[in-house]
Nucleic acid binder design. Structure first.
Lengths: 216, 216
DNA sequence: CTTTATATTAAACGAACGTTTGTATAAATT
DNA sequence: AATTTATACAAACGTTCGTTTAATATAAAG
């Protein structure tokens, strides 16, 4: 039985500094190296704490991962709750929503990377955890779509929205290395709007919306 | 110096059975567990070979990963080369292309998962490898887009296409667990066409194309 | 002050890691 | 046939892994 002392609430607002340091360091290292490739000794060293401290606060390495992923899902849930509410038409809601999701991803890139790279892996401890939260998100999306959900399956639209909004960030290390140093197109402030337009009206809509050119 | 004997060509058509067994097992296990979380002893046991045999054929664990990712990039390059060629308008080419990419992903899901989950990680040995190949793919996309490339950046469109086409497969373990057992909407034969429509004409285009409903 | 709770630590546990080495066997070449 | 090359193997190397334990330090409560 791991001696988890505080509630495993991730970066709760009353979290002491040490616990927060562990969390922040984990987010950074898990995103950069991947969860499995990040060792606890590396993590504790970079967080400036003793090795056993991580387990004291989070129970286990996996407990730490769960806390991060839980945080991510809560954030996404909040974004969806806020942006899919109301009586606007589905396309208006979806546009608003995917732009907000993309903005969230831009400011919490590391959390996104962790959640997304751990998503396809089959770890019994975590898969059920993920599935349960996905169910709740699907419910939100279903009711947000309204009648349109009968036309296009949530099981396609939900992942498509995430995949699209996340695409740049998945590719970021490669993009930064692959593109010429001068192309600062990666810092575009209108990325969420661009992705939203792509999602709502597709490539053709994006073309029509940018006749003047947005070349990098 | 690792004693790599045969060319690190992945699943080349002249590969002996043992080497192929290692490769196939690696693809399966790396996709399921992730690269770092898959041990060489697990891999060799499931492939039915001795532990040292993996290194004999691929030099190292990372050599094996590189072979798989190289394979993936070659496949994608071939798909793009075939589907972005010719003088069709960009939207026709892109539609054809993303449908073909989604079909490729459907039949090579494990390779996709590996490539995509390793994409955001910062491993010096592999990042440059990935970036170099991404540059070549960007070039293909650039010339395939023609004048349209001046309007919408390849650095957005390229990742967006992959993210969209891959979205279902990233979510697959979660979808399978999260959706009711009766919902066989995951096996839809028209997923590539749906994704293509979403990419070209967006959510609104998809709605217009499916007024009759495609509920799961 | 004493007691309790929380936080931190060094050391250790038991296991696992990827890679290398030397050897045996099979296949190919001379 | 002898020699060389290719394949496969067991054992070992040196290191690292996540977790646990027991002790200690510090803070909070009585």
């Amino acid at each position: 039985m791991p001696k988890t002392k505080p509630e495993a609430g991730g970066a709760a607002d009353t979290t002491p500094a040490t616990k927060q340091a562990v969390y922040d360091t984990a987010v950074r290292l898990f995103a950069r190296n991947g969860f499995a490739a990040t060792g606890m000794r590396e993590l504790s060293r970079e967080a400036g704490v003793n090795l056993a401290t991580v387990n004291y606060f989070y129970g286990s390495k996996k407990g730490l991962l769960k806390a991060i992923i839980e945080d991510y899902f809560q954030d996404i849930f909040a974004v969806l709750t806020e942006n899919l509410a109301g009586g606007d038409p589905p396309d208006v809601k979806l546009r608003r929503n995917i732009a907000a999701v993309a903005r969230y991803f831009a400011t919490h890139t590391d959390k996104l990377i962790i959640a997304l790279t751990e998503l396809p892996h089959d770890d019994p401890d975590i898969t059920e955890f993920k599935a349960e939260r996905f169910r709740r998100i699907s419910g939100l999306l279903q009711s947000g779509l309204g009648d349109a959900a009968a036309h296009v399956p949530v099981s396609v639209i939900g992942p498509a929205m995430v995949g699209l909004a996340a695409s740049r960030f998945l590719f970021l290390p490669v993009l930064q290395k692959a593109l010429p140093p001068g192309s600062r197109g990666l810092g575009g402030e209108d990325y969420p709007e661009m992705i939203a337009e792509l999602f709502i009206n597709g490539f053709n809509g994006l073309l029509a919306a940018h006749p003047g050119g947005k070349n990098d």
